Amino acid sequence: MEQATVKWFNAEKGFGFIERENGDDVFVHFSAIQGDGFKSLDEGQAVTFDVEEGQRGPQAANVQKA
């Protein structure tokens, strides 16, 4: 698992990007966020996640709020 920071997340559209420590951004979809209830992330929030290869490149999976 990697630890990184949420760059931005649009709760209405259900997706955003996580900024990795190496500077690369990773796409995150609300369905990858672990937990119950409304799944959203806040800008600047610390998260841990795995990286999977998606249809359009790397994307976050198993996202957990740190």
Rank of each mutant, 00 (worst) to 15 (best):
I18V: 05
S40K: 11
N10L: 04
G16W: 02
F27E: 01
V28M: 06
K7T: 04
G44L: 02
L41G: 02
F38E: 08
Q3K: 14
E2T: 11
I33V: 06
Q59Y: 13
N62V: 04
D24H: 12
Q59M: 09
A66P: 08
A11T: 12
F27A: 00
K13I: 09
F9N: 04
Q45E: 13
F17H: 01
G35Q: 09
N10H: 07
V47Q: 01
G54C: 08
D24R: 13
E53L: 14
L41T: 02
Q64F: 10
D25G: 06
I33Y: 03
G16R: 00
F17E: 02
R20Q: 07
K39P: 07
K65E: 07
K39G: 06
G37N: 06
V63N: 00
Q59T: 07
K39R: 11
D36Q: 12
G14Y: 02
D42V: 15
G54S: 10
V6S: 01
I18E: 00
V63M: 00
G57C: 06
L41P: 03
F9P: 05
Q64C: 10
E43D: 10
A11W: 11
F27S: 02
D42P: 07
E21Q: 13
T48Q: 08
D50F: 15
F27W: 06
Q45I: 08
F38I: 08
E52C: 14
D42A: 14
A11Q: 11
G54V: 05
I33D: 01
Q3D: 06
V28R: 00
F27T: 02
E12S: 13
M1S: 14
D36T: 13
P58D: 05
T5A: 07
E19H: 13
A11G: 08
R56M: 09
E2N: 11
Q3G: 08
K39V: 08
D50C: 14
F27L: 02
A61L: 08
R20L: 08
G14L: 02
F30D: 02
F49Y: 09
Q64E: 09
E21H: 11
V51S: 03
D36E: 13
A66F: 13
S31G: 05
A32H: 06
F27G: 00
D24T: 14
Q34N: 10
I33R: 00
I33A: 01
W8A: 02
E53N: 12
F49P: 04
F9C: 07
F9L: 01
R56T: 08
A46H: 13
E19F: 13
F17W: 07
D42M: 15
L41Q: 05
D50I: 15
G16F: 01
V51E: 04
Q45S: 08
L41E: 01
N10Y: 05
V47F: 02
F49R: 00
Q55P: 15
D25V: 13
F17Q: 01
